[in-house]
């Protein structure tokens, strides 16, 4: 197996590990960001073909990489960016209301 795929998997689960393990809200968002990036990287890796060129056909090329995953990656980037913006806004709000960034202390809702 090629190294890039291994990296993708490690990044994916590194992010998930951060989301599960870390107590700091901002770190959790960092984890989300890393998972997003790993998925985008996976998309780009899927589209890549050895020796291919970018899908901008100003000339006739022999081998062109797959444009679909790249388009999907763009969509995923934008969605991820807006998600992270909302998350961070909520983190700020939580900090203002609860005075903490520790995830275990935001627990008014329970039971």
């Amino acid at each position: 197996m090629e190294l890039p795929y291994v990296v993708v998997i490690i990044l994916f689960y590194l992010g998930i590990y951060t989301i599960i393990m870390n107590k700091n809200l901002i770190k959790i968002v960092v984890g989300v960001n890393i998972v997003e990036s790993s998925l985008i990287l996976l998309l780009i890796l899927i589209s890549f073909k050895l020796g291919g060129t970018a899908p901008i056909l100003d000339r006739k090329y022999e081998l062109v990489v797959d444009p679909i995953p790249q388009a999907l990656a763009l969509t995923a980037i934008v969605i991820g960016g807006s998600l992270i913006a909302v998350m961070l806004a909520l983190v700020i709000k939580i900090y203002k209301r609860y005075g903490t960034l520790n995830v275990d202390e935001i627990r008014k809702l329970r039971g």
């Binding site: 989301i19 599960i20 393990m21 107590k23 995830v103 275990d104 627990r107 008014k108 329970r110 039971g111």
Partner: peptide, 12 residues
Amino acid sequence: SIYHNGKLSKYL
């Protein structure tokens, strides 16, 4: 219901 103690990390 005690187990639902509001900790996000636990839920995850």
